[in-house]
Simulated assay, not measured.
Amino acid sequence: MAENKTQPTDASVDDFINQTESPKKREDAFRIKQIMEEETGEKAIMWGPSIIGFGQYHYKYESGREGDFLITGFAPRKSAISLYLLGCMETSFDELFAKLGKYKTGASCVYINKLSDVDETVLRELIRTAYQYMKDKYPTK
């Protein structure tokens, strides 16, 4: 059975963020890290070379494939900051998204150019709600 390519690592989250070229994106990344730690109660961990994750869950598909993945997280990319808010595309988060501000979505990601483009209070609620959704859907034994 193939393992996920994206696995938790021992790499330093702060060192990774400090390598972000744009000073503004670096500042936003440290702020998002703080927000996610506060809203999830989880410590930031590097997943693979470029994703900062908070918490993890175990999944098992009907095909038999199973593994572990981060519950929520983000990646400060060149084009945008990718927020991994798993579950928020599956459930009715429309009301929160309507109040979030300037963003784009794809699969299980919310893309923002900069933190000031979104309402931090709404972002916090999205993170909290998506995190709790995943904790409820994939309870730990």
Rank of each mutant, 00 (worst) to 15 (best):
Y133T: 15
K60C: 03
F30Y: 08
D15I: 09
D14I: 08
I112K: 02
R31G: 10
F54M: 05
A130C: 05
F69A: 15
T9F: 11
K102H: 13
L123G: 01
D15G: 10
C88N: 11
G64V: 07
R65D: 07
G55S: 02
Y103Q: 03
I35G: 05
R124W: 02
T140Q: 14
D119K: 09
K137P: 03
G67N: 05
M46G: 01
F97I: 13
E37D: 04
A98R: 05
S79Y: 03
T129M: 07
S22P: 04
G53N: 08
K99S: 12
V13C: 04
K99M: 12
E38H: 08
E3H: 15
A44I: 08
E37R: 00
P139A: 12
I112H: 00
F16H: 08
K24P: 07
L100P: 00
E27C: 07
G106D: 02
A2N: 14
V122T: 12
A75T: 03
V13N: 08
K137V: 05
I112L: 02
T129Q: 07
N113E: 14
I17F: 01
T9Y: 13
F93I: 04
M36Q: 09
E90G: 13
S22C: 11
L115I: 10
I52N: 09
D15K: 08
Y84Q: 01
K33E: 03
G53Y: 03
G106V: 01
Q19T: 15
K114P: 09
P8Q: 07
T40A: 02
L96R: 06
L85W: 07
D14Q: 04
I81L: 05
L86E: 00
Y84R: 00
F69C: 11
Y61T: 09
G48Q: 02
S22W: 04
M36T: 11
D117W: 00
E95W: 05
M46I: 02
N18K: 09
K24F: 11
S108W: 04
F54I: 11
A80M: 06
W47C: 09
K99Y: 12
P49I: 09
F74L: 05
P23Q: 01
I71E: 00
F93H: 08
G106R: 01
A107I: 07
I45L: 09
G48M: 06
I71W: 03
A11L: 11
W47N: 10
L70R: 06
I81K: 04
R77P: 03
L115K: 00
D136R: 10
P76M: 06
V110T: 15
R31L: 14
F54Q: 10
